[in-house]
């Protein structure tokens, strides 16, 4: 097999790159960007599990991200709990809220589900924005503490925070990989293809859809908690639809329903955006049309496009090989 297309080689190279990155580019700003990209990718993986693999486009994902961030914010700032305990609780609380919302939201389908979740997202935003006593309203929450040291490991330096995010990121990618490539993942995909067919195959669509929904909110909450711990300040704007749409863009550009899509899409866009600083506020001038064009011409994004090219090349090779064999046979026969 070609070295460049060998998955194990690529993955090992990427992990090594992630480890040595702070040494190659000892620039604090880039370190910051990379750390954020890890965090966003985790949130996108959550979205992809639900929208990409199970076929339910949730537009409340930014809201769940914000819930994760605010849970850790409220626990540490208002209740003065320790970082790690709060960090553990944040995704769990998000998941619990997700469970309750999912029970109702998943009774709807397709467009209704998208509109329903869009409304849920808005309600989360409005509650965070208006409930001053709990969330600090528009002023937000300031002074989320750093993670406490674990034994000799401290998290004061940006490099340490980078490695922490990288470590959690790797863990998440591994967990998602296992979910997607297992019977659980196959079950999700069957539901995406056709719920009627899945039901006729004895799959409880209700339970599995809820599982996908709750998992997706777990990863959104986890990413939100990481964000809050990293930036250490949160305001209601992180609950706004902009975040949902950013996450959606990362997922679509990378490839909805593909395993590598969230990484490819998030890093690509985050890095491009940083290099086009002047675009910051106008980045959607480029990414908006890109989103629309991709969904028309390559619905499974960059990764889906590459997969298709590779597959076709392999197929052509096989065909020409088969052709050659036939020719040889006829020659031998004649």
């Amino acid at each position: 097999m070609n070295v460049l297309t060998n998955k194990k080689v690529i993955i090992s190279l990427l992990i090594v790159l992630g480890i040595v990155f702070p040494f190659i580019i000892p620039n604090l700003y880039y370190l910051h960007i990379m750390t954020l990209a890890f965090i966003w990718t985790i949130a996108v993986y959550g979205l992809n599990l639900l929208a990409g693999y199970t076929g339910y486009l949730s537009l409340a994902h930014g809201g769940f991200f914000a819930i994760g961030a605010y849970v850790i914010g409220i626990l540490t700032v208002k209740l003065e709990m320790g970082f790690w305990l709060s960090f553990l609780l944040a995704p769990l609380v998000t998941m619990f809220i997700g469970l309750i919302i999912g029970l109702f939201a998943l009774r709807t389908k397709e467009h209704f589900f998208a509109i329903y979740t869009l409304c849920v997202g808005y309600i989360i935003y409005l509650v965070i924005d208006k409930w001053e006593g709990l969330t600090g309203g528009v002023r937000g929450l300031i002074g989320i503490p750093l993670p406490e040291a674990i034994g000799p490991i401290t998290f004061q330096s940006p490099t340490a925070q980078y490695y922490l995010a990288f470590f959690i990121f790797l863990l998440v990618v591994a967990v998602i990989y296992r979910i997607v490539h297992s019977l659980t993942g196959r079950t999700f995909i069957a539901i995406r293809n056709s719920e009627d067919l899945a039901l006729s195959l004895g799959i409880s669509t209700k339970r599995n859809k809820l599982l996908a929904f709750v998992l997706s909110t777990f990863f959104a909450g986890l990413a939100g908690a990481m964000y809050a711990g990293f930036i250490r300040f949160i305001g209601p704007e992180i609950a706004y639809t902009t975040i949902t749409f950013d996450l959606l863009t990362y997922m679509i550009v990378g490839g909805i329903g593909t395993f590598a899509g969230p990484i490819v899409g998030t890093f690509l866009i985050v890095i491009i955006s940083q290099n086009l600083q002047f675009l910051q506020d106008y980045r959607m001038l480029i990414f908006g049309p890109l989103l629309t064009l991709l969904i028309i011409f390559s619905p499974r994004g960059i990764v889906g496009f590459i997969q298709m090219q590779l597959y076709q090349r392999k197929r052509k090779k096989q065909e020409s090989l088969a052709y050659k064999n036939r020719e040889e046979e006829t020659n031998a026969g004649g």
Partner: peptide, 25 residues
Amino acid sequence: VGHRLRTKSNLFDSIFRTRRLKEEE
């Protein structure tokens, strides 16, 4: 996935790749 209904593996099995999951796969 057609045989999924005769298997018992859950999310836990999938994440930890338990023996049950491998066998059922």
